[in-house]
Design a protein around this nucleic acid. Sequence first.
RNA 1: GUCGGAGUGGCGGAAUGGUAGACGCGCAGCGUUCAGAACGCUGUGUUCGUAAGGACUUGGAGGUUCGAGUCCUCUCUCCGACACCA
Length: 845
Amino acid sequence: MDNKKMSSKQKYNPNEIEPKWQKIWDEAKVYSPNLDTAKKPFYNLMMFPYPSAEGMHVGNMYAFTGADVYGRFMRMQGNDVFEPMGLDGFGIHSENYAIKVGRHPKEQAKISEKNFYRQLRAIGNGFDWSRKVETYDPKYYKWTQWLFIQLFKAGLAYRRKAAVNFCPKDLTVLADEQVIDGKCERCETEVIKKELEQWFFRITKYADRLLNNIEKLDWSEKVKIAQRQWIGRSEGAQIEFKVQSSKFKVQVFTTRPDTLYGATFLVLSPEHPIINVILNSFQNLGSNGIPKQVRDDILEYVENAKNKNEQERMAEGKEKTGVFSGIYAINPLNQEKVPVWIADYALMGYGTGALFGDAHDERDVKFAKKYKIPLKVTVITGDKEKDERIKNFEECFTGYGILIDSGEFSGLTSEDAKKKITAWLKDHNYGGTEITYHLRDWLISRQRYWGPPIPMIFCKKCNWQPVPEKDLPVLLPDVEDWKPKGIHSTSSGQAGKSPLASAESFVNTACPNCQGAAKRETDVSDTFLDSAWYFLRYVSTDIESVAFDIERVKKWLPVTMYIGGAEHSVLHLLYSRFITMVLKDLGLIEFEEPFSRFYAHGLLVKEGAKMSKSKGNVVIPDEYISKYGADTLRMYLMFLGPFNQGGDFYDTGIEGMFRFLKRVWTLVHDKKDSMKTRNDSSSLLGSNEAYVFMNKTIKRVKDDMENLRYNTAIAALMEYYNFLSKQEYIAIEEFRNLLKLLSPFAPHIVEELWEYIGGKFSIHQELFPKFNQNALKSFHRTIAIQINGKLRDTVIVTDQASKNKNTIEQLARKSDKVIKYLEGKTINKVVYVEGKIINFVIDDR
RNA sequence: GUCGGAGUGGCGGAAUGGUAGACGCGCAGCGUUCAGAACGCUGUGUUCGUAAGGACUUGGAGGUUCGAGUCCUCUCUCCGACACCA
């Protein structure tokens, strides 16, 4: 190879060819399927980015490239691939960035939009640029608001006063899913609880459906597990305890009704509504009344609990606190009088907010020991020593066993006792089977500016009314002071002072029902509502009269392949499933699961550390693209490691990939002439060996692509290159296939080289090569010769010879290395695995 | 604590129970060059040996098997998710 003779025109220059082809693809609509007439629709979706920084980082590009490679592969399988892109630009993340840089979110959105789209184009994905979605576009959020109204009309959006998560830094409430380790998902500030009236979506109504459908989904297993866990279905019993000397009752949830006989106390959550009822009713009851001291203690404890944040409550996890309520309840099973305590280890949001304490729960035992509440062991194991420890309270037994001291239920196994006691409770009207969930209703309100205004109007006479659909969108008003204000008052229906409240012309309106003076809701909705339905909008961006065109939806959805990060396991993915189910129930669509297949890609890290702005190790793709080109970066990212496991980004590796593409470039240019010669001959192909290699490579790459094992697909392509580069002649078919196999990874360079070897535009509309099954077998086999499983020699034989054990054994016995080991030894056995190994088993001593 | 995932050369990583370390990075030597860059060729798990050739080697300990990175039991470490969920 003589590089000196190569003209400058022949040099691989990605900065020249990449923008060129991107423009040509766009104009030729290579990646824009006709949504109405496509024959084999394949909706290849990737999670759209949220602009929370100047631009996209290399982690986004990693995800998008991996998804695009799959889309390109599916296109080559003859599918009409629809691969849209957009921006999830509404929401706290974008607004916080606007605050940081001191720009109005509307201004910043324009800047981010431009920069993100520039970057998204530069990576060379097969996006359909004619169908973008930006969640802050009024044409989009009009339908987000419409969606809210549909939920309201269906009784699935409601207002409720509850202790909700509030971030004191972002000055807004948050959904449970947005609280990570007791901290705000966005700014990591410790979240506090506030008693507020807010809008919720009744996702809990769908808990069972969301749970039961999971097993049918073709999703990454870890995401399915995370969703199951988040929904957190627990089967148990609800049990009614009567409060002594009163008409009041407390409902208690348990998963262990078999331990009810041993219930020696009750625990109420500090937020439990019955506490106030009790305080008010018992105060004047004379001898039965609650002493003032006890009363004061209760009030103080409840007040303290209210002001603690999640972190504080958790930090005290080991040290339980509580206060005696002064009253007693009756265990329905044995009529025993048990004290009622108030303790914050009982959570108002789970079960009934009340539980019974017994000797078979570690938390209960800790609490009881601290406050010297008696305990009673009612379940033992049958193991003498262990039971001795259990009975002496040296060990807390929480498993299933055999009941003791449980009246008529003594001697039963826990399993049987559960059934029998639950049945007993039901028969005696004390409760029965009950199912409870970890999942809670989705808190939708946000006291922020940058989101779709919740399209509701409050009228003192008519209560809450939805904005008439003809009046949508409720435009986000241009307020000057758009920064978050927090919540100052929650009196009346109005939810405090979010930034929209300062725009009087926005707030004051007429009631859609009675036309009287009324006020608009001033909160906006959660960003996750924007992204919970965007996949429906992509297919209808050219239609303004509906949220989504039903015919298009029928044709393209559910999404065929969805690729994204596992961090959205319980946020976006769960919300999207919920919204889709609701739309199905409203008769608006025909399916209830939005994503047939979901594939979670791994996390890209930088030199062993998670990329984060605070660490300052965020890698921006731009500089690498201008230095090496998008093709090199794409291939490098895909080669780092298995796509579902992520990888580590090192600069040095990119050089190697750049080298590889340069080699391919040079090979095609150098061998183009010899290729022509071969093309004139009768055979289109090179040697037999070359034919076998080509077919093997096609098969390897195809298998790997199907399973998103891109790193090994690229390795196979490198091996193929290494082989071809050593050949004197390369047939045109070999070049064509090399380029086709490479095309999903490096779309620009292959298009350029495709043109160079005289291929018809565009290589991206070609089909994936097919391999010849008969050509997969080599003509030679290398057989490993083992002695007692240890490799001693190899022998090369014809495919024919490899079929005969005797032939191989005779050959193997002739090997000097083998003779050395077999001499004077008894051969007990000879194992032959056809075409692979022959193993002599000998006495080794 | 519960549930996942993973431990293989200097590094990223390959291996339907059948030649461990493919492919790439890095490194070394050679070639090309006035020189460098770039490019090309060769070598490269550890260890003993001039070599031929051995021995050892997939976090650790056992086991199944003719044969184990892969299967089973126990155990250690790291990463991720959830977490006072009754």
